[in-house]
Design a protein around this nucleic acid. Structure first.
Length: 152
DNA sequence: GCCAACGTTGGC
DNA sequence: GCCAACGTTGGC
């Protein structure tokens, strides 16, 4: 069982959107490191901290779960998609993958970024490191437990 | 809107 | 392979 943190802009795709859809493909990842995590390490049942970024209250909203392992992200081949990738299209094959996730539970309180930063035991999280922009990050079992115990 | 940090691109 | 230019991320 692995633990992850996945960032999303709530204006684009929020926790409530996921709840409404019950299950959704995590498309649009266009970073190799993030892709490789999904492709090589994401397993069914892995637990995901669902993080809202670039918004008024950045933080972890709840826990989601991987319900389908990596498969090709077709938006890379769709010229009308915001996530269109010309070089994938040129190759005739998407070089990007996605997984499907489903909601598990929403936290009672938002685990906001400043609170996470001030919690002993979470300070090593990549999320908090200066200049860290990676949209999919590994989380340790210890960090996951601490976060869910504190905010769930 | 600002801007630091980072990843990618492309000419050489 | 280098590296400057450019685009993006994301907190503030």
């Amino acid at each position: 069982m692995n633990y992850w943190l996945m960032k999303t802009e709530p204006d684009v795709f929020s926790w409530d959107d996921l709840v409404k859809k019950k299950k959704a493909p995590w498309d649009g990842v266009r970073n190799y490191q993030a892709r490789n995590f999904m492709r090589d390490q994401f397993r069914l049942g892995d637990q995901v901290l669902f993080y809202h970024s670039s918004c008024a209250e950045p933080g972890i909203v709840g826990v989601a779960e991987v319900v389908r392992e990596a498969y090709p992200d077709p938006t890379a081949l769709d010229p009308k998609s915001d996530y269109y990738d010309p070089s994938s299209a040129k190759a005739g094959e998407s070089r990007w993958v996605m997984v499907d996730v489903a909601p598990v539970r929403k936290f009672r309180n938002l685990a906001d970024l400043s609170a996470i930063r001030n919690t002993k035991g979470l300070q090593a999280m990549p999320l908090l490191q200066k200049g860290q922009r990676l949209s999919i990050q590994p989380v340790t079992a210890r960090e996951f437990k601490l976060i869910t115990e504190t905010w769930a």
